[in-house]
Simulated assay, not measured.
Amino acid sequence: MKGERNRSSCKHARTRRKETPMTGNGTAAQTKERVDWVDYAKGICIIMVVMMHSVLGVEAAAGQTGFMHYVVEFAKPFRMPDFFLLSGLFLPLVINRDWRTYLDRKVVHFAYFYVLWVTIQFGFKAPAFAAEFGWPGVVRLWLMSFIDPFGTLWFIYLLPVFFVVIKATRRIPSWAVWGTAAALEMTHISTGWTLIDEFAARFVYIYSGYLFASYVFAWSNRARAYPGWTLAVIALWAVVNGGLVHTGISEWPIVSLALGLAGAGAIIAAGTLLAKMRWLDTLRYCGEHSIVIYLAFFLPMAASRTILLKAGLIQDIGLVSLIVTIAGVAGAVLIWWACRNTRANFLFERPDAFWIAPKKPAPTVQAAAE
């Protein structure tokens, strides 16, 4: 019954037709129905993720902080929770697929891009690693990245794990799964292993997207119907979130979970209003290509950071951080544009050899690159 309600909500959400370069099941250039506000919300999320890595990287290299640091701190409670919640939102549409198809779309797809891009990242970082650990150490670190996710790619690594766990636990009462996931988040586990720590901290959000999809779509519909009230709610949330971050209370158990869910709701509402007004179309475009940006932003981000800091032409670290953020997002899109119609398109499109199920696009509403 829950799954049927979720499917109905997805189907009745406002959609548009759009060409997608890389959908959740890996097919390229296929016309899919898309939910407009999801693209806007994912656009906000991916920019915040790039911003976090850009700002913290610049500040670490420069040894000082800038005004962008406060933006990153404000977004910390909800930046990744929202991304994971959106990733689980359309899972009810595919959860009943046979295991072979499900694993192809939800595991092999992301595994291919993780293996490829973690190897690319190691290629760029190998000289520095070799200087510190020696070349045998580089190989050891690369092999370890398949046990515990490496660097910025941990999100791509963790998604397939979550998808398998959600399908495997369908026979367990949903309240028990959600309650356990919430308890894990509130324990703030810190073992030093990214897989364990991030699983505990994030699973509740992707499971919430899956479990409460119908309520999420209802919230979006209400936000679209009452924009004035929605703006007031977003403003109130921003004040409360900012205050709790400033005082450090945002890190407390229960509070962190509440802020993660509330922040996700605020971003969904903001995305809905932007979609309603058709404003900031660039943001929507980033959401459509969120995985493309996530995979490739590290290179233009690192390059622009190095150039700007060594040149020393801009003294304001906040401004440098902002420019590096823009360069990371725009540079990733440019890399994809340069590769998409060439033999290098394997960087963003899974080749036929890496499919374990037939390419049969599902006639369902799809978000930008699940």
Rank of each mutant, 00 (worst) to 15 (best):
Y285V: 11
D82E: 06
I249R: 12
L91Q: 10
A332E: 05
L153D: 09
F78V: 04
L295R: 01
I293R: 04
A28G: 11
I293Y: 09
D98F: 10
V216M: 08
L211H: 14
V71C: 07
A302W: 00
I206G: 04
E19P: 01
A303P: 08
W237H: 06
A62D: 00
E288N: 11
L322D: 03
D316Y: 02
W252R: 00
R105K: 04
Q121P: 00
I291Q: 08
V58C: 09
L274E: 02
E370N: 14
Y102G: 14
K125L: 15
S208L: 14
A61C: 00
W279R: 10
L257V: 12
C286W: 14
D148N: 15
A270K: 01
I291W: 02
W154T: 10
N241D: 08
T169I: 01
A126Y: 06
D98W: 07
C286M: 15
V333S: 05
D281K: 12
S190H: 15
A332L: 05
V216E: 00
G137P: 11
G123C: 08
R171D: 15
F155A: 04
A201S: 15
I356N: 05
A367K: 01
L259W: 13
M1C: 05
I249Y: 08
V239W: 08
I196D: 08
P77S: 05
I172G: 05
V333I: 13
K310I: 03
K32N: 10
N96V: 10
P81S: 02
A61N: 03
A201E: 14
L153Y: 14
G260T: 04
E349N: 04
P149E: 10
K359N: 13
P227F: 03
V164P: 01
T342W: 08
F163V: 03
F74M: 00
K106P: 01
L93V: 03
L236Q: 09
K276S: 12
P127C: 08
Y285A: 04
W135T: 14
I206R: 01
F90G: 02
T119P: 07
F78N: 00
F155G: 02
C45F: 02
F354H: 10
R7N: 08
L93F: 03
W355Y: 15
P21M: 06
E33T: 11
K18N: 00
R105I: 14
F155P: 01
I196A: 14
P173F: 05
V204L: 15
D36C: 07
L153I: 09
A75N: 15
V49R: 01
A62H: 06
D281Q: 09
K76I: 03
A303Y: 12
L313Q: 04
A344G: 12
G57T: 14
F348Y: 11
I291D: 00
A223I: 07
D148S: 14
W355C: 13
F113H: 12
G248V: 02
